[in-house]
Design a protein around this nucleic acid. Structure first.
Lengths: 173, 173
DNA sequence: CTTTATTCGGCGGATTCCGCAGATATTGAG
DNA sequence: CTCAATATCTGCGGAATCCGCCGAATAAAG
C-alpha cells in the first residue's frame, strides 16, 4: 500500500479524501507516519486514538508501510557520541570508461561512508564520511581513492557542522 | 549515560570491559543500539534475551540513551514514495557580516531541506533538498535564496541518485 | 445487482511494558 | 581497609499493549 498507488486494482480501495476532517485513506497513512516520525516506538493504540481509527487498523497500515519500504523505523546513533568526530567530504571524478555505478557501489560498501550521491557538475560523486580522527580520514583517502584505477581525481573538503540530516517530510505539504 | 562519559562521578559505574564475552557496560549499549538499528520497535525483552541482561535494564539504558540524545528512534519516509522525486543541491555563500549559523538555522526550518551542512571551501553551506517537481525547486530557490539579504550567492546542482544515506555506525569498528 | 478483493474493527489470550523497591556493585573518603 | 554514598541491575505484580483471527463493511469491476 504505497502512499501513491501505482494503478487501481479490483476490490476494496482505502477510503479517501473525507473533507469532513475524518482521517481516511492515504491521509490516514500520512497522519500515522507523522506520529511515528516523532516517536518511532509510539504505541499503536496511542496512534489509533489520535487519528481516530482502531488499533488493529494502525497496526496493519504500519506493517504494510514497512513491508513496502515506504518507511523504516530504526534507531539512529549520533556519530559524535560514538566517537566519530571527524567529518570528511570527498568529491570524485570517475575515470573515463568506468561505470559510475560500479564506483559508487564499491565506495558505498565502506562503513565510514554515510552519504553518497551522484551529482551533476564538475564531479560525479559526492561523499560524506565520518571518522574518529584526521588520521583516519587520511587512511581512508589513501586506501580507497589515491592510486585507484577507477578514479580520475578527487577533491577534498570538510564538513564543519551538520545542521540537519533527516528524511522526514511535512506530509501535509 | 553517554557512550563516552565525560568524567568519572561518585557511585556505581556501569560494569565494563568483560573480556569473557559477557555483555557489560559500554559494550552493552553498543549491542542494544545495534539491535535497535535493525528494528526500532524491537521489544525490550527480546533485546534483553539477546544481550543477556534483564528487560528492565534494557529499558533503562534505552531511555537514557534517548534522553541524552545519543540515539533517536523515529520513522523515516522514503521521499520517492511520498511523491518527492526531484532532488536539488544548493551551495550557499553567506553574505559578509552575517552569521552562518543564523542562515543555517533559517534554512534548516524549511521542510524540503533534509541535509544541511557547513563546509570548508568556496561556499559556506551545502544543502540537499527534495521536491515534487522541478517547478517546486525553482519556487524553493526564488523564495528562500534569490533576493535574500543574508545570502551573497548560490550555485546549484542536482542529485542524480542517492546511493547511500544512513546514520548508522559499525559500532564494533 | 452481483461478484470480488481488500480494508476495517472487535475479541480473546499471550506478551510486553511500566513503576517500584530491594539487592548489588563501584567509587571516593576517612 | 572500612564505610558511606551513589548509581545500576533485577525481580515482581498490575496495567497496558500487541498479535492473530474472523466476520462485517466498503469500493471497484463485470
Amino acid at each position: 500500500m504505497p502512499i501513491y498507488p501505482d494503478a487501481p486494482k479490483r476490490g476494496r480501495a482505502p477510503r479517501d479524501g473525507g473533507d469532513d476532517g475524518s482521517p481516511e485513506g492515504i491521509e490516514l497513512n500520512r497522519k500515522i507516519i507523522a506520529l511515528l516520525q516523532q516517536d518511532g516506538r509510539m504505541a499503536y493504540s496511542a496512534i489509533a486514538a489520535q487519528v481516530g481509527v482502531s488499533e488493529g487498523t494502525v497496526r496493519n497500515r504500519v506493517r504494510q508501510l514497512l513491508d513496502d519500504n515506504v518507511i523504516t523505523i530504526q534507531a539512529e546513533a549520533l556519530p559524535a557520541a560514538m566517537g566519530y568526530g571527524f567529518n570528511g567530504l570527498t568529491f570524485v571524478k570517475v575515470a573515463a570508461g568506468t561505470s559510475i555505478d560500479d564506483v559508487a557501489k564499491r565506495l558505498s560498501a565502506i562503513p565510514e561512508v554515510y552519504y553518497l550521491i551522484m551529482v551533476l557538475g564538475r564531479f560525479d560523486l559526492s561523499i560524506a564520511t565520518y571518522h574518529k580522527s584526521q588520521d583516519d580520514y587520511r587512511d581512508f583517502l589513501t586506501t580507497h581513492f589515491y592510486g585507484q584505477s577507477d578514479i580520475a581525481g578527487i577533491e577534498n573538503s570538510l564538513v564543519l557542522k551538520v545542521h540537519k540530516m533527516k528524511l522526514q517530510w511535512d506530509l501535509n505539504g
